[in-house]
Amino acid sequence: MITTINAIRAEVAKVVVGHEKMIDGLLIGLLCEGHILIEGIPGLAKTTTVKALSKTLGLGFKRVQFTPDLLPSDILGAEVYDPQNNGFKIKKGPIFTNLLLADEINRAPAKVQSALLEVMQEHQVTLGDESFKLSPPFLVMATQNPIENEGVYPLPEAQLDRFMLKLRVGYNTTEEELAIARRVASSTYEEIEAVIDHATLEKLKEKVRSIHIDEEVERYMITLVQATRNPQEFGLSEIKRYIQFGASPRVSIDLFKASRAVAFLRGKEFVTPSDILSILKDIMRHRIVLSYEAEAENIDVDTLIEQIAKAVPIP
């Protein structure tokens, strides 16, 4: 099974240099059926990575560029008048795909974001009187640009909670950037081939679900989540004032799922605390609501998560 994963990685690596963490994050999302929010400045190969992954998996891929004048029907589809049949017919939107890249999701107004997020939760679209089930797998990968503040509509906390992971994409290393520049300058792109099919993907998901989690480790996960709600109980009174709302139960669920996927990607049969910790920030960072004081003092949520992880004893 791990060879399949490595084959996927190798295919993606044909067009994407570095960004292993983002690729792994996407794979985790795919294996756990969780949606991914990717935050990073423009030009860091976010879209390229998603496209490459979709090709590798042989899945359908659509990309929607979110703009302030985007309407829900632009994504979901609409009933349109058919003059030949003298009636209405359904025109499906780009949501009807396996991998949807919602580029710059925070540029669209709340009604569009809500329409998308509803589908993310229900995996179902209702157009007119008819409801359409989305064919699995369905995965939304949304990107947002952290450096712009004007003309953007930040996602509300309730909607952010629906994303399983929020990945932060940073710059490549010097060597990686050199390789990118050489590759682009010489236009030597390799063709990406699909290495798995839908059935194989389902088998991989089944395998992930079978990864064992010891009860102690399970409790460790729950304790980590609870520590975000009541940090003072773990000797972190000083950070209590920075956290308005701690992580929701969805975090616990996603932590269970994602840690299994991490263990699987690492070629293990069981989850260890290191698997949890390695995915902890990506799962929690968009779900902990910081207080005004934290904003004023420019406290980073990742730092708080690190403190919480330090305070909770590893089993």
């Binding site: 260890t272 290191s274 698997d275 910790l277 902890l280 590893i314």
Partner: peptide, 24 residues
């Protein structure tokens, strides 16, 4: 050891996976 595992794991960097596993 556990502290090192925690620190390395929290970084989320793949290059530490081997060391983490060896430590575990």
């Amino acid at each position: 050891l556990s502290e090192l595992v925690r620190i390395l794991s929290l970084s989320g960097e793949k290059r530490f996976d081997e060391v983490i596993r060896a430590l575990e």
